[in-house]
């Protein structure tokens, strides 16, 4: 009896051992053959990233960002929205690079063509995606530059910082949630959304229109279009405003948030956000 048992045990041990041995050799050979040599710094950078894998940097997760950063050997053009500049500073320190000061930014919608201001002239009835609507026609409001209102930007936002306002048909950006990842900027087929400086106390002034058509044409479609009249240009003492192709643009680097230009705009195309309420103005400036 014992002999048989011994035999079985011996046989098992030998055969399993042999299989194990062969498998180990194969594994070793395969591992040698398909060896991947990785830069150890990638792991180092990944450690420092928040591991949220949100894709806010525009890459597929934190590992991908780490790989990209190490490959580029610099932090230029990379941004980790949830981590902010602190994380970038840490990475720079660890890598021994210089970290540029990052100014806090925020996404700004440069269109105010609400259903009321740019009433729909036609009805859109196709896939609810701006990419297709843009290829199909100028938009329900008729403005070939304006927001199409299908909400591709909202879908692109991974931080719940945007929603579509059903009343106006325009997306709304939430100041406290936007991390300036610029996913919406990339998604918008009409390049309406711009990354602008967040400003002191989240205050910002911008031209809420990107229509380059002639004033009359633009106004026909939308009551709050920039008509390129240039009044704001004359008002600005800091050369922050430029006028090109019938469209005024405020340079956020030069703008001092003096609030002089919004009241002079005849179409109310210049928006000011998060400022205290103005004192009652004389009737003539409010008009038109």
């Amino acid at each position: 009896m014992n002999e048989i048992l011994n035999e079985i045990t011996l046989f098992s041990v030998v055969s399993l051992g042999a299989i194990g041995g062969v498998a180990a050799i194969i594994l070793f050979l395969v591992a040698q053959k398909f060896k991947v040599i990785e830069d150890p710094r990638i792991d180092q950078v990944e450690e420092l990233l928040p591991a949220a894998n949100c894709g806010g940097c525009g890459l597929a997760g934190c590992r991908a960002l780490a790989e990209a950063i190490v490959k580029a050997e610099s932090l230029e053009g990379f941004n980790c929205p949830p981590g902010g500049s602190d994380v970038m500073q840490d990475i720079a320190k660890a890598m021994g690079w210089e970290a540029g000061e990052t100014t806090p930014m925020i996404a700004v919608l440069r269109c105010n063509g609400t259903r009321e201001q740019a009433p729909p002239k036609v009805r859109y009835d196709s896939a609810m995606t701006c990419a297709f609507a843009h290829a199909l026609f100028a938009g329900e409001g008729g403005c070939p530059y304006g927001c199409l209102g299908c909400g591709d930007c909202v879908l692109a936002c991974s931080f719940d910082a945007m929603y579509m306002d059903k009343e106006t048909g325009l997306p709304v950006i939430l100041d406290d949630k936007c991390v300036a990842c610029a996913a919406c900027v990339k998604e918008c087929p009409r390049n309406i959304i711009e990354m602008r400086k967040k400003g002191k106390k989240d205050r910002r002034i911008f031209v809420s229109c990107i229509n380059e058509e002639k004033g009359g044409v633009a106004r026909k479609n939308c009551k709050v279009a920039c008509i390129g009249c240039g009044k704001c240009l004359k008002e600005c003492k800091f050369d922050a405003i430029t006028l090109e192709n019938n469209l005024a643009y405020i340079d956020f680097e030069k703008c001092t948030l003096c609030r002089k230009c919004p009241p002079v705009c005849p179409t109310n195309a210049i928006h000011e956000l998060n400022f205290p309420v103005r004192k009652q103005k004389p009737a003539e400036t409010v008009e038109s």
Binding site: V122, R123, Y124, L136, F137, E140
Partner: peptide, 8 residues
């Protein structure tokens, strides 16, 4: 009249 615009 308000026309409908849709893809083919």
């Amino acid at each position: 009249k308000v026309l409908t615009v849709s893809g083919s």
